[in-house]
Amino acid sequence: MMSARQQAWTSDSPETPLLGGDVTVGVVRSGDTVRRPPGISSPAVRVLLEHLEETGFDGAPRYLGVDDRGRDVLSFIEGETAGRPAPEWVADTDRAISVARLLRRYHDAVASLGVPTVFDGARLSEPQGLPPALEVHRDLIGHRDITVENVVFREGAAVGLIDFDLARASSRADDICNMLQWWAPWMPAEDRPGPLIDVDPYQRTRAMLDAYSLDPAERRLLVPLARNGAERSWHLMRHRALVDGGGWRRMWDEGVGDAILRRQEWLRRNERSLIESVS
């Protein structure tokens, strides 16, 4: 009997575009599968998803193979995702807490993978003027794109992470900073999705970190990592816009660079309150 990965996947079933991605185009749903054009991250994502399946982690798509058009075939995770504009439920604190718990389960499952050499290709090139990254122990593969659009919910609780294209060597704290950026959220009100404009980021931060059960030593890393990440992000986004073009260029032209600068200033101005919220 053929396994799922040995099936001869075809592209003759009806397809529905899956919208919301900023960079990858051409992602569709076909039956119970998702079809994605292959990219530079495809080999690494395959290794990651196969490892998660082997560990029994049920919060990520399964890698199923390649179809007759050369597209990666993944399982479709049934549930509710935030579109654009974001729905009101993204402001629900219980949902945010469930995201933190899901991320903890993901980290615990992926830790045994380590950092395979296939992820060397996922390392971002270092443009001139890029501030150096803070030196922390990056011993697992972080998701690094935990936006409100990349989490699947069922019955009000987070059950799945999708879109692992930016997955790369990380510390737990790196990935948690990314989660807090979008879900606390650690950014000025003018750049937040509408429902999150009036959310108290400090209260949400405490609730999410308690749900994750992050230890005190790693909590102390969060604010410095967030500030360093925001400083590096401007240079990296500009570089990808100039070199890679496509969705990266569109985001840059739409003002993502200015939003990053505003986030840098917000993190600077609110550093003391953020440190208190993570303690």
Rank of each mutant, 00 (worst) to 15 (best):
M1W: 05
R5T: 10
Q6R: 12
Q7Y: 11
A8H: 15
A8Y: 13
S13M: 14
E15V: 15
T16L: 15
P17I: 03
P17K: 02
G20L: 06
T24M: 14
V28M: 06
D32F: 13
D32S: 14
R35P: 00
P38R: 12
P38I: 14
V45P: 14
L52Q: 07
L52W: 10
E54F: 00
D58Y: 02
P61C: 08
L64N: 09
L64C: 08
D68Q: 04
R69P: 01
R71V: 10
S75Y: 10
E78A: 13
R84K: 03
A91I: 06
D94F: 06
D94K: 10
D94V: 09
R101L: 11
L103Y: 14
L103T: 12
R104C: 02
R105K: 02
D108C: 13
D108F: 15
A111C: 01
L113W: 15
V115D: 03
V118N: 01
G121H: 03
A122P: 02
R123P: 01
E126L: 12
E126P: 03
G129R: 08
P131N: 09
A133N: 13
L134F: 04
E135T: 04
E135R: 11
D145I: 04
I146Q: 02
T147V: 06
V148K: 00
F153R: 02
E155G: 01
G156E: 05
G156K: 08
A158M: 11
V159Q: 00
L161A: 01
L161E: 06
D163Y: 09
A169K: 12
S170W: 00
S171I: 09
A173C: 09
D174Q: 06
I176C: 14
W182Q: 08
P185D: 01
M187H: 01
A189S: 10
E190P: 10
R192Q: 09
P193H: 00
P195D: 08
D198S: 09
D198Q: 11
V199A: 11
T205L: 13
D210Q: 09
P216Q: 06
A217S: 07
E218G: 00
R219I: 04
L221P: 05
L225A: 02
N228I: 04
A230M: 11
M237D: 01
R240V: 02
R240M: 09
V243I: 14
G245Y: 03
D253I: 11
G257I: 08
L261I: 14
E265Y: 07
E265L: 14
W266V: 05
W266A: 01
E276V: 15
